[in-house]
Design a binder for these strands. Sequence first.
DNA 1: CATGAATGAGTTTTCATTCAT
DNA 2: GATGAATGAAAACTCATTCAT
Lengths: 191, 191, 191, 191
Amino acid sequence: MSKKQEIITIARGIIHSKGYQATSISDILNAASIGKGQFYHYFTSKYDLGLAVVEDLVQDLDQQLIKEIFQSKEEAKKRLNKMLDWNLASHTETKSKLGCAVGNLAIEMSEHDETFRVKIKEFFNKWISEVAASLTEMVEENQLDPTINCTKSAQAIVAMIEGGILLMKNQQDIEILATVMDIIRKQYHLI
Amino acid sequence: MSKKQEIITIARGIIHSKGYQATSISDILNAASIGKGQFYHYFTSKYDLGLAVVEDLVQDLDQQLIKEIFQSKEEAKKRLNKMLDWNLASHTETKSKLGCAVGNLAIEMSEHDETFRVKIKEFFNKWISEVAASLTEMVEENQLDPTINCTKSAQAIVAMIEGGILLMKNQQDIEILATVMDIIRKQYHLI
Amino acid sequence: MSKKQEIITIARGIIHSKGYQATSISDILNAASIGKGQFYHYFTSKYDLGLAVVEDLVQDLDQQLIKEIFQSKEEAKKRLNKMLDWNLASHTETKSKLGCAVGNLAIEMSEHDETFRVKIKEFFNKWISEVAASLTEMVEENQLDPTINCTKSAQAIVAMIEGGILLMKNQQDIEILATVMDIIRKQYHLI
Amino acid sequence: MSKKQEIITIARGIIHSKGYQATSISDILNAASIGKGQFYHYFTSKYDLGLAVVEDLVQDLDQQLIKEIFQSKEEAKKRLNKMLDWNLASHTETKSKLGCAVGNLAIEMSEHDETFRVKIKEFFNKWISEVAASLTEMVEENQLDPTINCTKSAQAIVAMIEGGILLMKNQQDIEILATVMDIIRKQYHLI
DNA sequence: CATGAATGAGTTTTCATTCAT
DNA sequence: GATGAATGAAAACTCATTCAT
């Protein structure tokens, strides 16, 4: 892993935990054991690093969520189930405090900065459209009521997950996310 | 309105828009046209103001959402519909950027500070339990499938709303929240 | 006791403990349970209060040390002994931390402000000259070696007491002052 | 000299003159012609600097007073005389206003802060014990009355010097310190 | 590439003082 | 006389960024 990538990875962890604005360059320097010069060699500014972090994050999610889960050869129902499992698994007991890395940034940065906002928006759009595609597939396979609006339902599912993570973070209790996942599974016949 | 309340109200607006940490005392001073000394005459610290803001916010929501909507004499179905209407109305086109005042703070502060976290948690708990009570009432009146778990469903509803607001904020599009509300109405026979 | 005197007395205690500069008007207002308006009714400024405090202090010492001890009808030897006793008694175990009220101000303010400096200087001069007079009397009564220089010895005695209090304050141990007093008594045949 | 040491040295001078609390970071910044950032690059806080200043001060005194004078090969009488000379020389006419750097801090900080207090206390203890050792040596060499208590006398000598400096500072007159030194020399047969 | 010294604008906070009531 | 709201200068401290080495 290149030094630059190493810095991004470390910064991602800190930003996930403290938020972008509350994370100082020094926090990153200390955690990465590097000097100022090296940081500014790789990044032109804190903002530049922030963007790199979102890109790295979105790319990771793209790989794990979109490519490995949604674009796998599994059938739609299984894909949706895996997506829920993966989401739940991302928030283990110890990390339940941190919340969703993208969701946090969505809230912190959306009004603050267009570039951040759009990058995050694109990820959510991809996620929603993959969920919608899977739902459509389920409808086609007669596993789901054909009168539902798949796109809208996909938005609702992603909203529920993000809202569930928000509540989980606030209550410091992973149970609430599991509950939300259960409800989704029941409502969309994923069991 | 007392000067202190005036400062809180102004600060609430700014914090809703920029977040607690990104809001500087100077932002508030300028918006309220007061001097530093006056601010510290009413509040011992920025943190003290932050707490006052959350309390004010939670109290307002308690009045508007819990007391005026849930504890009104309307029947359960109507109450839930009103709650959804009220939520949607809170995010007009112009304010769609800001997101949920409590939700934003939940994400920004939950890991950072216990006092903030607990105050917000208590509000969410109240909200969820009122939704659960309304759902129970609907079940009793045979308006809803009796096999559903009302508490869990209430959590899912609140999660969906908060998640919907999060997506709306990120997409800068109020439509997504309206969509989520529709789905809730359909799923819980509120139409 | 007038309100003004009450404020002075309270301020004296706080200044003795924290020093003049480190004492804030608020400290005094809180301790005296009065408002800003009342304070500025009696004093034109913090400096004005400071001066009043030194004057009050010096006047008290003048009464207790100069008038009641040195200008009593006792014989010189007894007067000097009483002076030492009184000094020691002023620094009980609990107050050994505070040091000498005048000495502290002498160090804190002498370079800072001429008015303070001169007021304190006058007190020390009075003290020294009274000690000198007592020593002279002892010499005349053949209780002391006639070759000593009474004025210089008086300076040395006051220096020893003030230095002893300084060390006592720093060591937080009243013993050291008692030791110094003993030495003085032996050196000047006061036992 | 390193920049850090340079800042300490400059700060020592200012603190000697104004006291720790009355010295502002800006005072130091201006005197040293550096920016805030640089200051906080070397010190974590004003307190941190304060501690560094006391340590630097105590170390200097340790070198000049303890090592170079008391631990020299001279005989006891000469050592004590040198100590008095050195003390007097430290307070030239121009600097007579400032008083004793350690003594000032002893009075300003002893009640305020334990760490300062203890560092200063240790210096005074060292000084006292060296004086005591020298007196003991003089007693052994029959230059001094064997019935005196050397430790107590050492305390008295240091007290006299510190008290003399206090009076000198307050009277703005170096003469008084010279007088005190004379008295010490006579009392302990140092002439 | 890398270090960390240096800059300076901005942040939170304190506090003596004034002023309207 | 008395209250405490209001002012504003200055304090301690933070932090992104630049620059000499």
